[in-house]
Design a protein around this nucleic acid. Structure first.
Lengths: 359, 359
DNA sequence: CTGAAAGCGCTTACAG
DNA sequence: CTGAAAGCGCTTACAG
């Protein structure tokens, strides 16, 4: 074993925080003394209050003192006075489960930051007790509001304590409380866009391998597929819709059934499925996109852009979901009433669908 | 367009926080009045101070009042008094870039939580100004300490403001300040474990496709490969070491060169490379693991377990990195002096390497 | 067993 | 132009 020894329970390094010999942090009062002014004046200078008339010379002295002492304002004290913090809480049910949650966090943090807020996050992995504790913690820190997010788009109940704060549901919605603000991906538009990529490629007989797992995505993506066919004047043929488990194994397993259908193109419920299907098609000596065109859904990082050939798909807008959630919380973005705000799933075209040669 | 209209600059919903009609939150004082006791008593009851002798009847009355009023302590005020917050900051340079950062966050948050700390995160995407602001913010919130993390294992310089706080480097290390505590993956052990999987499979002539990108991982994984061969009494043959860009395209592109080598097994720098190589081998009519055994590195979610056949690999312990960083910060886990703490990369065996049939 | 008082580090009217 | 004072919501000795 090359790795260092870990000693979690070492008695010599007890759980209590070691008394650090950090000098007491510099306070406003000390700055005031150093500058020979009152704390009020220092506060005024720091916060650049417009209607405060401070002599330039005084201002100068204060700023010098701040710099020399390395003063850092105490945000706790500031927030105590103002009665409200500059925090936005984000509770997520599954950072562990997928790469998706990371993007929600990312979008939320960028947008929060932009408006002067910091993100306080809590990962609950679906554990209800943890969730209650997490929300309680955020409430005690008097957060400006809470983003309650799920790693896959679904219906959820609003935990009762969540109502003690301003909140927005992200990637989920609550059928029980339609007044709760929510932001979700537009699955139907996404499904339509995915299908349209194929239609533009000149395909008319298009299979859809849907998921076996019930979810808004299952219904929405199917609805989008139908809408696209409709718009193209192609009658919906239920026999072209298959179902499989939404991962590589599911896609691979659906190959045989798909090949019975005699289609020139297939739209898969997600990219993982498409990845498995690639293997199945190859084993049958078929080439993509010439023998069969393929589109996926999710634009999953590390996968979609790197299959052979690169996969045409539709992006699940997790970053935007997080960002829009924050905007909605802050009242910058209006919430449609009685419904969730739907965020577009943009099409991403790659070479798994050949361009339509105008014949 | 099916999606809702977004109105970022809508004048009707200005950027200033709307005055919400939330009732003033319940305070300690109000609880005290309701219970007919002093605020000191309420504080004592809430914090379950052991040496405080409070009559059961009084305690009862206080708890009732707390429940009835729905009292939530103000964490800001608490922290102001104690002089230190219950926050741990996490600055990350790339949540966007990979699925890995999510696991560091996850591990850090779980461990922090366990010790009563909440995570304050900031994503800088490598932007130096953002980074300075992020650290300043954390300092102003008087965090217990800061975890400074990178999305791939590398050397870094410690930003000067970081030194104003207790800190630990996570997934990176600072050659300039060897005294800085750090926790990194044990690349050499990982490379050795990966190679050992192949050796156990009975292979003697094993190729290694390393990365073209300089990094501790490049050197460490190679060193591990050599160590494993050494231990098995197999002379190191430099001609068996190739290099390619560390993604699917790189792995695929290395196929031809690899096939010249006449090896029975190959160890790839990472899983993405192995994924591309799978395609290349298949195109050449070779089957895994019978014609050639493959191992990767990273145990990348969504990929490794779902290739055909599932890929043997070695885990990059991001969750553990985050958790160990927190423990080190809190002084629960000792820091080896002058060096980074190395976390094991555990082997994950799947069917891309056949079991060695004892001959 | 319990209360009055001081203080944590700030900001904000209010005087002057 | 600047300072003295009160107060944000808590906790912690100190009395009694």
């Amino acid at each position: 074993m090359i790795s260092q020894e870990k000693n979690p329970g070492n008695a010599a390094t007890p759980d209590v925080p070691v008394t650090r010999d950090h000098v007491h942090p510099v306070t406003l009062r000390e700055v005031a003394e150093a500058a020979g002014v009152s704390t009020a004046t220092v506060s005024l200078v720091i916060n650049k209050k417009k209607n405060a008339r401070i002599a330039d010379e005084t201002r100068q002295r204060v700023n010098d003192a701040i710099r020399q002492l390395g003063y850092r304002p105490n945000a706790m004290a500031k927030n105590l006075v103002s009665g409200t913090s500059k925090f936005i809480g984000l509770v997520a049910d599954g950072v562990a489960t997928t790469p998706f949650a990371g993007q929600i966090i990312h979008g939320a943090q960028d947008e929060a930051w932009k408006h002067g807020y910091a993100l306080l996050i809590a990962n609950t992995e679906g554990n209800v007790d943890l969730e209650k504790d997490a929300i309680a913690m955020m409430l005690e820190y008097k957060v400006r509001g809470i983003l309650y997010s799920t790693w896959f788009h679904r219906a959820t109940k609003v935990p009762s304590t969540l109502r003690e704060s301003d909140f927005v549901l992200v990637n989920c919605f609550s059928p029980d409380s339609p007044s709760a603000r929510a932001v979700v991906p537009d699955e139907a538009q996404g499904g339509q866009s995915a299908t349209e990529i194929l239609l533009r490629g000149g395909h008319r007989r298009i299979a859809f391998i849907n998921t076996t797992t019930p979810a808004p995505a299952k219904d929405g993506r199917l609805a989008g597929y139908r809408a696209a066919l409709d718009a193209a004047g192609i009658p919906f043929d239920p026999s072209l819709v298959l179902e499989a488990y939404p991962d590589q194994e599911g896609g691979y397993g659906a190959t045989g059934e798909l090949l019975q259908l005699d289609v020139s193109a297939v739209y898969c419920y997600n990219d993982r499925m498409a990845m498995g299907l690639y293997d199945g098609l190859r084993e049958n000596g078929l080439s993509i996109p010439d023998d069969i065109a393929v589109v996926g859904f999710d634009n999953q990082e590390v996968i979609a852009a790197h299959l052979r050939p690169p996969l045409s798909t539709v992006s699940l807008p997790h970053y935007e979901l997080g960002a829009a959630g924050v905007r909605m919380l802050l009242g910058i973005e209006a919430a449609p009433d009685g419904a969730a705000l739907k965020i577009e799933c943009p099409a991403v075209e790659r070479s798994s669908v050949a361009l339509h040669s105008a014949a």
